[in-house]
C-alpha cells in the first residue's frame, strides 16, 4: 500500500500526515490523530455522528476520502471551544440537548456550520441542518431549542 503525505489545516493548525488512498477522513482523525470526539455510528454517511466542517460546510467524514481533504480547512468538535465553551456547547448543556452524547459532537458540528453561515436560521433551516444527524435519545426537541438559543446568544455577542 502506498502512502501519501496529506496536508491540511485542522482546527486552525497545519497538519501533515501520511495516509493511504483508501483511508477515510474519519479514520485518520480518530485513529491516526487520536481525535476521538468525532464519532463513527455507521460508516456510510447515514447517521451524521462523524460530521466535521470542511471548508465551511458540514460533511460526513466517513464518506470523505482523506486525500480529498488536501489543503482543506477542517474543523472538528475538539476545535469548537475557543478558550471558553462555544454558545452551542453552552446551550446544549443548559437546555437538555445531551443524553447519551454519541450524536452530540456531530450534532454540534452541523449546527455550527449552519450558524457560521446563517446567524438567524428559521426552525426549518435548523431541522434541515441537523436532519442528517440521527439522535435516538432526545426526540430532537431540546436539540432544536438549543440551536435556536445559541443563535440568539451569538447574535447578542455580535
Amino acid at each position: 500500500m502506498s502512502f501519501t503525505t496529506l496536508k491540511f489545516t485542522l482546527n486552525g493548525e497545519p497538519i501533515e500526515i501520511a495516509v493511504s488512498p483508501s483511508d477515510m477522513l474519519v479514520d485518520v482523525l480518530r485513529d491516526k490523530l487520536e481525535l476521538t470526539g468525532t464519532k463513527k455510528g455507521c460508516g456510510k454517511g447515514e447517521c451524521g455522528a462523524c460530521t466535521v466542517i470542511m471548508n465551511g460546510k458540514a460533511v460526513a467524514s466517513c464518506l470523505v476520502p482523506a486525500l480529498k481533504a488536501a489543503d482543506a480547512e477542517i474543523e472538528t468538535i475538539e476545535g469548537v471551544a475557543n478558550g471558553a465553551a462555544h454558545p452551542l456547547q453552552e446551550t446544549f448543556m443548559d437546555l437538555g440537548a445531551v443524553q447519551c452524547g454519541f450524536c452530540t459532537p456531530g450534532m454540534i458540528m452541523s449546527s455550527k456550520a449552519l450558524l457560521d453561515d446563517n446567524p438567524q436560521p428559521t426552525k426549518s433551516e435548523i431541522r434541515e441542518a441537523i436532519a442528517g444527524n440521527i439522535c435516538r435519545c432526545t426526540g430532537y426537541v431540546k436539540i432544536e431549542e438549543a440551536v435556536e438559543a445559541a443563535a440568539e446568544k451569538l447574535r447578542e455577542q455580535r
Binding site: R30, D31, E34, L35, T36, G37, T38, K39, K40, T76, I77, E78, V80, A81, A85, L88, Q89, F92, M93, D94, G96, V98, G101, F102, T104, P105, I108
Partner: peptide, 23 residues
C-alpha cells in the same frame, strides 16, 4: 431542579470516552 448534567461538558467537547474510543 434541572441542574447542568455532570456528563454534559465532556460530551459537548468531544472528550467523553465511549467503548469505541478505547485504545
Amino acid at each position: 431542579k434541572s441542574v447542568r448534567r455532570r456528563d454534559a461538558l465532556a460530551k459537548v467537547s468531544g472528550e467523553a470516552t465511549f467503548t469505541t474510543d478505547v485504545k
